[in-house]
Design a binder for these strands. Structure first.
Lengths: 341, 341
DNA sequence: TTGAAAGCGCTACCAA
DNA sequence: TTGGTAGCGCTTTCAA
């Protein structure tokens, strides 16, 4: 730290310069109406003159308040999360909160560290996408801290925090019934970390929809991976080794789907001709890729906005009943799934 | 706020429970070696038992320190910025800083508000991409506050803060000399906000490179726009109205280039056949689009990492001379520019 | 409407 | 090595 930094101008300094008490000056910075216009003018003038900067840290300490919220997200690079982040920050900033950001890279330890830091920094609440390895222990600590918590996009099994997400089961159901209607009988499920709640919800609905259509669930058509393009490539590579190839692949998300399509292209196969590919999320890349990707909207920006609103409400009233906001997905049929069987 | 929230456990409480003084307990939480193992054990045990959470806000107030840095970025949705953000947060978290995030949407007022908030929150330093409308006045205020400041990707003209960015002039030079070598004589410059420093650096180099190649600079081939896909579409639409069409377009960034290519496709023209398209940044989409986009790497993640390191150094030593780190761009030749003239 | 005094939770400083 | 006291910059409370 720099040693001969100018001393910060305090409210005390301003008060003395203006010839009023500290308390009066304090009321003025907070815009209290009980101060005469003349005094206010005089004090505000001095503040400007001295270059006074309000010390919110000290104020929050004294008043036991906090205008800061913690935001914990797994990764930024995935456009689903960057759009989510965009929605969250826009709403939180509008509501006047200051945001402390942390990224976990889906690591349990990093999540623990970041949560601890946020608690130490007296955040008023936490908005997060819990890492897939989160446990009941994680939940317990947060509950014990009595902090407003909203889960976004993913949830810890058995937790009772507010939650905003997409209806993953309905989304998978839309996809499978569409593919079945198109005549597909062998539909793979590709990519994604099985520890995350969306993965489990989607696959459970995938299986159920297959059974309802009178089809078997073939475990060899289910390939897990990390939720990246590279993961998509690897999952597709593996599925292509099966003796009897699937005619369609439902991918965990758009990024995985794009990786899968790249793998197909790399082998001289054409997505949308040799195999139907469907994604999930409807990120921007989905409509930019050739062929354009059939996918399900999961409205990350709207999820972010709703989650931020929910956190605001919970901070206002900690005792209110837990709320779950589940958005309805929409299927977007594009060229990647138009296979003639 | 919830009214009957449990009182926070303080160091005082811990000290009393353990039968030591507050000062001793304080030394222990900070890991001082001057405490006997027995006392330490006893106190740490009590902390656990009582569920003590360190109050960094109070500690920072007292010690006049700060472990928080402000991060101000124009937008998250553009992959250039999300990759930049990724690089910055990874490095800052590694260095132990807590990050306050703000997004400006390139709005001057929002930037002012967010900067004020960060100052009020006693950040130890600021890492930012100044909005394009930033002025000398903005600079003056920050200098007056004596805060460590690092500019990322963009800089305010005449400012003397540390800066990390790409060599925009070299990047534009690479592109134009390549296109000229390919035989292009009419090369458009599309998209981007002319108020931002990268835009000005690139166009100045574009003009110079044309002149050096013995070509004229035709102002009707320069179309400004917002730096979005939509902006790219509009810029392309406009350039197509020119009586004598350009054979190549150098776009402000990849997002603009993709918009421009979509506009071409929408009119039945083929990028890479009917017109050569070159972007800037080399974001992931660039190699996903068909045709794959010829572009210049601007290494946002690395810029982020370097900027975070620089801020760390400046916080350590405020008096050190201002540093400028300019990364060398690389041209990636792909299909979008392979036009047979 | 304004002022004086106390104290938020912590660290700094000095004494023991 | 440990403890007592003062005080970071602000808000709160009560009195004037």
């Amino acid at each position: 730290m720099n040693s001969k930094k100018k001393r910060r101008v305090t409210l005390q300094d301003v008060a003395k310069a203006a010839g009023v008490s500290r308390a009066t000056a304090s009321l003025i910075v907070r815009g209290s109406p009980k101060i005469s216009a003349a005094t206010r003018e005089k004090v505000l003038g001095k503040m400007n003159e001295l270059g006074y900067v309000y010390d919110r840290v000290a104020a929050n300490l004294r008043s036991k308040q906090s205008t800061t919220v913690g935001l914990l997200i797994t990764e930024i690079a995935n456009p689903f999360f960057s759009e989510l982040l965009d929605g969250i920050t826009a709403e939180l900033e509008k509501e006047g909160y200051t945001i402390i950001l942390g990224t976990t890279s889906d690591s349990y330890d990093k999540q623990e560290r970041l949560l601890a830091t946020m608690l130490e920094n007296r955040v008023a609440g936490i908005l997060w996408t819990p890492v897939s390895a989160s446990t009941a222990e994680t939940t317990k600590q947060l509950i014990h801290s009595q902090l407003p918590v909203v889960q976004v996009g993913r949830e810890i099994t058995g937790s009772t925090f507010d939650y905003v997400g997409i209806d993953n089961r309905a989304g998978a159901e839309l996809v499978i019934s569409y593919l079945v209607k198109e005549g597909h009988r062998r539909i793979a499920y590709l990519g994604g970390p099985s520890a995350a709640s969306p993965w489990r919800e989607r696959i459970s609905s995938y299986k159920q929809a297959l059974l309802q259509a009178g089809l078997d669930v073939d475990p060899s058509l289910i390939v897990e991976s990390v939720a990246t393009r590279e993961g998509g490539r690897m999952a597709m590579a593996e599925i292509l080794t099966r003796e009897s190839r699937p005619t369609a692949a439902f991918c965990f998300n758009d990024i995985v789907a794009i990786g899968a399509m790249q793998e197909l292209k790399g082998r001289g196969l054409t997505p949308g001709v040799d195999m139907a590919i469907v994604g999930f999320d409807n990120v921007e890349e989905a409509s930019i890729f050739t062929p354009r990707l059939t996918t399900v909207s999961s409205f990350p920006r709207m999820i972010g906005t709703e989650a931020a609103k929910l956190l605001h409400q919970r901070i206002d009233d900690f005792a209110r009943p837990a709320e779950r906001i589940i958005l309805e997905p929409e299927l977007h049929i594009r060229e990647s799934s138009q296979v003639r069987l």
